[in-house]
């Protein structure tokens, strides 16, 4: 599945992450901004990638602005962003 509608979920608040999905046809690309990128960047990207895979998303540009979210939050925000995109609506 290719993301057709731009969408976002989450917030730029402590312990949270803002996930923005943009339409793309070049596979999954992730642009991550995070204060803990050096220590956890790879892990955060892998959580995003796996969650998208499980949701059946094959192509999108993900812009992620992280403020120290744990994995369960990252997962939840990605799922919500995908749901919102499928719902046709973006609120940005």
């Amino acid at each position: 599945m290719i993301i057709q509608n731009p969408s976002c979920a989450g917030a730029m608040e402590s312990n949270d992450i803002l996930i923005m999905l943009h339409p793309s046809e070049d596979g999954v690309q992730i642009q991550l901004e995070s204060k803990v990128k050096k220590q956890f960047g790879r892990r955060i990207e892998s959580v995003i990638k796996t969650t998208l895979e499980q949701a059946g998303v094959t192509s999108t540009v993900v812009i992620a602005r992280d403020k120290g979210a744990l994995d369960y939050t990252i997962k939840a925000r990605v799922i919500t962003a995908v749901n919102r995109s499928l719902g046709g609506g973006s609120y940005e």
Binding site: V36, K38, Q39, F40, G41, R42, R43, L70, D71
Partner: peptide, 10 residues
Amino acid sequence: ELTGEPEDLE
């Protein structure tokens, strides 16, 4: 368990 193991700094 909550955060995962931090990567070593380069």
